[in-house]
């Protein structure tokens, strides 16, 4: 990890970004612990409170999970981060459809009906494929 103090990106955010990159690259795998706050502080010569702030942020983002007295562990990202991203995309697509409908005087009840029917047809198609 290389910290650039002259970058206007705050140091804790640099740690967050580089830790995420390291997880993506497979340096730390799911279920493994990140270096302890103290060990990382000494390694990169950064105040341990800053490391704590970065680890708190990683936990808030759902990338890691802190287990009291044991350390900070990498979470299964398919079950959180990746899903979060997918859900965001879905939400945006639904919104587009709803906005389009409302703009063309389609009633909310009819919009719900259409949602249910496209959901049903998608599910039956998926079943047939299996």
């Amino acid at each position: 990890m290389i910290i650039d103090p002259r970058n206007s990106n705050p140091i804790y955010r640099q740690i967050v970004e580089q830790t995420r990159d390291a997880i993506d690259a497979g340096v730390y795998r799911v279920g493994e612990a990140l270096p302890s706050q103290r060990a990382l502080a000494i390694e990169i010569r950064v105040n341990p409170n800053t490391i704590q702030k970065a680890y708190d942020e990683l936990e808030r983002l759902g990338v890691v999970e802190a287990r009291r007295g044991l350390g900070v562990f990498v979470r299964d990202r398919k079950s959180n981060a990746a899903r979060g991203k997918t859900e965001k995309l879905m939400d945006a697509a639904f919104r587009d459809g709803i906005v389009e409908g409302l703009a063309n005087d389609v009633s909310p009840t009819r919009i719900r009906e259409l949602f249910e029917s496209s959901m049903n047809s998608s599910l039956s198609k998926a079943r047939k494929r299996q």
Binding site: P5, R45, V46, P48, T50
Partner: peptide, 20 residues
């Protein structure tokens, strides 16, 4: 610094180190 009990005061114009 890591002990959390030692108070440190340092003067410097090495801003990179200070910000870390």
């Amino acid at each position: 610094i890591c002990s959390g009990t030692q108070t440190i005061l340092f003067s410097s114009h090495q801003l990179d180190e200070v910000s870390k």
